[in-house]
Design a protein around this nucleic acid. Structure first.
Lengths: 243, 243
DNA sequence: CGCTGGCTTGAGTAAATTCAACACACGTGG
DNA sequence: CCACGTGTGTTGAATTTACTCAAGCCAGCG
């Protein structure tokens, strides 16, 4: 925990190293970035649609999501984020936020001036490549979400969300399917899958009855990883992980 | 028509100029790119999920989509493309296709080696910036589609798709709301909105009855642009067009 | 002429939503 | 310590939305 305060870029560097072969100079250049640290509570808005943004946000601790809303107030979460994720890399090149950025747990964020990141991308090609890949994988995940929300039934949709989240958690070294605590309420799962919380509840109860999930107080565990993957039709190809 | 054969990069350059201030050297560098030309029929697969891709495709003429399918064969279109669009810019940095690339009309495509584009991005920062913006706007559109498919009802969803398409057509200088021919069948609209063709038909009949759309044989016209925008709750902010 | 592909219509069904309670854990203040 | 309020999860019944199945239509074209 404290190490993250001392080295806010540790998780980011770990992630980027999976995307491109950073050298010492690259790592130093990242660590030399100026930043502003923010400690925020759960459900806090970091940015709202329409805001002008000159910073990119890096999630250090806790969980966050990007979401959009309709006039009637309905919320659609379009992505979920873990520690080490860049939350709005698009502000590298786009000034106006096209979605909200909101925490789903208490969190620590670091804000990096977009201009400094832009310079880094141009002066350090390997970092540029890593960030390109990060942005393109981000887009690939959005495509999968369009499929998820557009064509899968409720049960499959929820199972797929959990599989994706679990896989990303594991890749980030933050947990394993067996012992793993879901940071999302059923309402968050509903807003991420385009369902109502009530229907999410029913589907998850059914999955628990089928032995796929397991609950212990507030903690949700994946009881049958292979079964959940099968129920989701989950294929991690779209995450473009380096095997 | 013939001019596009002589200058396959014309529309792309026109588009990139809206994203970053290209100079003559930039334009020449783009025109100097090696390419392979393909003429394909409607419904042709240019690339399939899982394929290894070493080229990026540029759409010269006709219309295309990116789509993903479930095991049961259900298809979800995740994006629609016009002449001048780069269809799979992600192969700039990612080797394996995570979705299918398919035409929805007879089309002409130009394939550009991804490595050459990658070099261009590094050596010509302005082109790099334009392509970054293009990729980030692409991602922004995916986010809007997640919202569209996840939270809007059928009628609003279809109306929104038409508004977006119309706006992009107009920005690309390919048509106006008043006189504009939809290249999509109702089945394509269904696969793009996560609905069934039959339900799309019913909703579009209703919109026609309400005077929003108009049909003349095979041609679909937008009869009431303001009304359609209202029905869609369409706000073009997410397209990040330069005003 | 008779296909073919796209569009249209109707009736019955399935999936997910809405509305309305209720349960339960947790934290706060009395 | 308990009472209470809040946020989250749970359950049931009625309703809405969209889907499925099954035809039929209609224009363009070989």
């Amino acid at each position: 925990m404290d190490s993250k305060v001392d080295d806010p870029f540790g998780r980011l560097i770990r992630k980027l190293e999976l995307l491109a072969p950073l050298d010492d100079a690259d790592r130093d250049a990242i660590r030399a970035l100026p930043f502003r640290r923010r400690v925020v509570s759960s459900q806090a808005f970091l940015l709202r649609e329409g805001d002008t943004a000159t910073d990119c946000s890096l999630l250090i601790e806790g969980y966050a999501c990007r979401n959009k809303t309709l006039n009637d107030g309905a919320r659609q979460i379009v992505s979920l984020h873990l520690p080490g994720d860049l939350l709005d890399l698009q502000h590298l090149m786009l000034q106006v936020a096209d979605h909200n950025l909101q925490t789903i747990s208490p969190a620590i964020i670091v804000c990096i001036p977009a201009g400094r990141l832009r310079t880094l991308v141009q002066e350090r090609p390997t970092i540029g490549q890593a960030l390109w890949r990060d942005a393109l994988i981000d887009a690939s995940i959005f495509r999968e979400w369009v499929l998820n929300v557009g064509r899968r039934g409720a049960r499959m949709r929820i199972a797929h969300l959990l599989c994706e989240f679990m896989t990303r958690v594991e890749t980030a070294g933050l947990g394993t399917p067996e012992h793993f605590h879901l940071p999302m309420t059923q309402e968050v799962i509903a807003d991420a899958t385009g369902l109502t919380p009530i229907h999410v509840n029913r589907m998850m109860s059914a999955m628990r009855a089928d032995g796929l999930l397991d609950r212990n107080g507030r903690e949700l565990r994946i009881a049958n990883w292979a079964g959940l993957r099968a129920a989701a039709g989950f294929d991690p190809l779209y995450l473009h992980q380096i095997g």
